[in-house]
Design a protein around this nucleic acid. Structure first.
Length: 573
DNA sequence: GCCGTTTTCGGCCCGACTGTTTTCAGTCG
């Protein structure tokens, strides 16, 4: 699929236009098209063949033509045109906090700054400070920005982001006069990675709260500290992270929460819609003329626009507003709907906890059943079980189940799909298992689609684990056609996994939604290798919610008997 | 460059903070 490369080109065109001094809406249009394209699951080539490019919202005749040009020739003339004369290294300067297109343009034109090296020079030798609109303070802020850009890690995984947000909120909770405090932003929407933490509060004494905030123990730098707003950089175990605080009045809280939860594109769509109704919406409320008509909570804000409440995870401008208007929003799955975790490792393979510990922890969470799925024989690096060891493990689990009441351990395995698409246990061994999970751990680029589909067609397989194989920001995943995998899973009634490990989240939100739309059931599993990992279920559920999944779409919400019935039916299918 | 429950032209979301300025531009979210 060429969606991502084209999206990157469109984004680059937007940046180049900005650097050339173009402001305004053409830039926005390219940005929007880039975003929409990067989130699209359908192949642009396919859409082009069917002459449907312009049916994509945000893509009109102009950009459609450019996409066609790229598909036909491998390049877009417009890109070459607008980037002509811009040193490629100049684009990198946009990543420095405090440096926007205007400043870069100024420094480039006045002082021939073409890259980071030039930039540092004109900042330190004093020449930049003499330019119009520049000054000592601005120069020192940009220097700090460079330092930050060089030391700030990439975006946070969900585990780090939740931990940081919840730590800061806990720290602030005893501030005198604090009435409400919560996190917003992309973390509240459950995005798979989070750039910074947004915290929203209501306080009797805002100044006291700002003071408390900027004095957080891990504060490394105070970026700003106003009457109602502040921003700090914090050192965590993973790098330097930004945290923003916003303080509002109690009757504005809902409007502010809605606003700071975003996403930006959801908010733009909401505001545009409000405008058409003669309303104005901001973080202070919904207004008709000067009169505030809503704002104290989010329900009220959406209601003022004639919409039902839209869950944060849906707010990505991916059709949720239309669905809300038409009353067909999903009733999203919730964490307490989960009755089981069906992909768990123990110290029998490469896990760290004993089976007894896992059982006890899962009982405490409130699950009624789990499935143990150790690695299979080809996964030697992960302590994969031989067939004999697997059979002994099954005996053990049978014995344990005899002693348990109100809880059941299912016998399973995470079976490797070999290079020729077979499974590495015999049918006799697989036949003894309650649940068979198949997955790719080798040959990431070798006919993966065909091999996964072959596994799906295997009569004893129930679930395909981490179907894309990606590790977020670390590894792109297998060379695999997920569209085909989903189609195949739908045809053979197999289940696809949302692996809840925060570095995987695989299937991701977009593909899981696609799977649901194709009629495929999903499993949310932690793939835990120890008791501590069981909490990852939270990230899996949030991903499922972003995928519009309901309780009925997820097999972890089934009772034990319902699940066993389903697994048997799959075998007979 | 996109788009249409006023429109195929003329709109396109809204506000805080900072640093530079004497009223505002740039950046950020």
């Amino acid at each position: 699929m060429k969606n991502q490369e084209i999206a990157r080109i469109l984004e680059r065109i937007a940046e180049a236009l900005e650097l050339k001094g173009e402001t305004g809406f053409r830039v926005l249009a390219y940005r929007k098209a880039a975003r929409v394209l990067s989130e699209l699951t359908e192949d642009v080539e396919e859409l082009n063949r069917e002459n449907r490019l312009e049916s994509i919202p945000g893509i009109g005749t102009g950009i459609a033509k450019k996409i066609q040009e790229y598909l036909a020739t491998g390049k877009i003339k417009k890109l070459e045109e607008v980037t002509k004369g811009i040193d490629p290294e100049l684009f990198a300067l946009l990543n420095i906090p405090g440096m926007g297109p205007k400043t870069i343009k100024l420094l480039h034109e006045q002082l021939q700054v073409n890259n980071l090296h030039d930039l540092k020079k004109v900042l330190t030798d004093g020449s930049a400070a003499h330019l119009p609109g520049m000054g000592k303070k601005k120069v020192s802020n940009i220097l700090k920005g460079i330092e930050i850009a060089e030391h700030t890690g990439q975006r946070m995984y969900l585990n780090e982001a939740f931990e940081l947000a919840e730590n800061i909120i806990r720290y602030m909770e005893d501030t005198d006069g604090l009435k409400k405090i919560t996190f917003a932003g992309s973390l509240r929407r459950g995005k798979e990675t989070v750039g910074d933490i947004d915290i929203l509060a209501v306080a009797k004494k805002p100044e006291a709260l700002v003071k408390k905030f900027i004095n957080y123990k891990d504060t490394q730098q105070i970026l700003s500290a106003g009457a109602t707003r502040a921003a700090i950089r914090v050192i965590t175990n993973y790098g330097i992270r930004q945290v923003d605080l916003r303080i509002v009045e109690e009757n504005e809280f809902g409007a502010a929460l809605q606003y700071f939860t975003g996403s930006k594109s959801h908010n733009i769509a909401i505001r545009t819609m409000a405008q058409k109704q003669g309303l104005k919406i901001s973080e202070y409320g919904v207004f008709r003329e000067e009169k505030r008509i809503a704002g104290k909570d989010e329900v009220e804000v959406y209601q003022a626009l004639g919409l039902p409440y839209i869950e944060p995870e849906l707010r990505e401008d991916r059709g949720e507003i239309e669905a809300a208007k038409e009353g067909r929003l999903p009733d999203l799955i919730q964490i307490h709907d989960i009755r089981s975790d069906l992909h768990l490792h123990t110290n029998a393979s490469d896990g760290v906890s004993r089976l007894e510990e896992i059982i006890s922890a899962c009982k405490n969470i409130g699950y009624s059943h789990i499935a143990i799925a150790e690695h299979s024989i080809s996964a030697g690096y992960a302590g994969g079980l031989s067939e004999e060891e697997l059979m002994r493990r099954c005996d053990e689990i049978d014995k344990i189940n005899d002693k348990l009441s109100g809880f059941r351990v299912l016998k399973g395995a995470e079976v490797d799909i070999t290079l020729n698409g077979d499974l590495d246990y015999s049918d006799r061994a697989l036949g003894r298992l309650d649940v068979v999970i198949a997955s790719i751990h080798q040959g990431f680029n070798r006919e993966v689609t065909k091999r996964i589909c072959q596994a799906i067609e295997h009569p004893l397989v129930h679930i395909i684990a981490h179907p894309s194989g990606r590790l977020i920001d670390k590894r792109p995943g297998y060379t695999v056609d997920l569209e085909k995998v989903i189609e195949c899973a739908a045809n053979f009634r197999r289940i696809l996994e949302i692996n809840a490990f925060y570095e995987r989240l695989d299937l991701n939100d977009i593909w899981a939604r696609k799977a649901k739309e194709a009629g495929v059931l999903l499993a949310i599993n932690t793939d835990a290798h120890g008791v501590a990992d069981l909490d990852w279920m939270r990230y899996g559920v949030i991903t499922a919610r972003r995928a519009w999944l309901e309780k009925a779409d997820v097999i972890n919400c089934l009772t034990l008997n319902q699940l066993l019935k389903l697994l048997r039916e799959i075998k007979q299918y």
